[in-house]
Design a protein around this nucleic acid. Structure first.
Lengths: 162, 162
DNA sequence: AAGATTTCGTTGACATGTCATCGAACTTAC
DNA sequence: GTAAGTTCGATGACATGTCAACGAAATCTT
């Protein structure tokens, strides 16, 4: 009904800048990661989330939720990573349907050697370019947007209305 | 050599928030766009860039550069969009190798009816959640990162070292 | 405890993106 | 002019992501 509220100049600048940064940063980080560590960003994220758990083990469902991936996507990707020896699957004791994704020694090795370079790249191309105030603003703003989109960070689990 | 400078708590919060926002915002905007207008984000971006030119025409190369897409990707995508009647290709007069991407009436219709809803979604899920200061900060910060990554906005063209 | 419903993970078909390669046409240097 | 090198866009093979469906197992309902 109402006339569309188009983006004004500042809003447009922020929106275009965001999308452009998004694309360029992605390309660059992926490029360095592949070159330096032979991993894709997807690989890195899987290994990273796994390695943040004490045992390097997670239910497939749990890992998919944390990554905001579909189970299907994760299952396909794990099959490929498994063939490269980075992870394995184990049966779940509590739930016979389930499978547990396990970091192999090679997988742990891979993430450990990739991490320093990747963090350095994130600093070089993003974090170190920002003032402390901008870092805080980015943290605040992104989390607000995530909350608005219903992003319960780790486990949605039950209690959808609390 | 040096010990890795890991991200401190604030930096980590910003980085994780950014990536999470990125993913959730993408999913939501794509979902609404598909539902309301039958377009993917890729479709929308192609149509949007084309419609911003006076004639709704662009050299394939030029369009690929603006979008930060490879010519290959764009060529594949245009083939699909062409089959749906959203764009056509014409021969280029100046350069017999070239092809010119042209918005069809159906394509113009599609972007015109999709745009208000899409802008509203961008506002609802991002822009309107930010304070004016945050909008400006996001604009400033993203453009700084883009510049750092060598993102000459429209045409890289010659003069790589100036 | 049986039946209905939901969840888990896998699978196959298909959509999309990347990469290497190609022929044609443009540009440059002689 | 022409040979060498570059750019343009298309293409096919392949990697990756999405979607719908499935069987098996868990959970809920009565």
């Amino acid at each position: 009904m109402d006339a569309t509220r188009w983006l004004d100049e500042r809003e447009d600048r922020a929106w275009r800048g965001y999308r452009r940064m998004r694309r360029l940063l992605d390309l660059e980080l992926a490029r360095e990661l592949t070159q330096d560590a032979g991993l894709s960003e997807a690989d890195y994220d899987v290994l990273s989330d796994l390695s943040e758990t004490p045992q390097g083990r997670l239910r497939l469902r749990e890992l998919a939720d944390r990554m905001l991936w579909s189970r299907s996507r994760l299952s396909h990707h794990l099959t490929r990573m498994q063939q490269r020896g980075l992870v394995t699957r184990e049966e779940c004791a509590d739930d016979a349907r389930g499978s547990i994704v396990v970091l192999t020694p090679a997988g742990r090795q891979a993430i450990q050697s990739a991490a320093p370079g990747h963090v350095a790249a994130v600093r070089r191309h993003l974090i170190d370019l920002l003032t402390p105030a901008e870092v805080d603003a980015l943290g605040a703003l992104t989390h607000r947007v995530v909350d608005h989109l219903g992003g319960r960070t780790p486990h949605p689990r039950h209690d959808p209305e609390a």
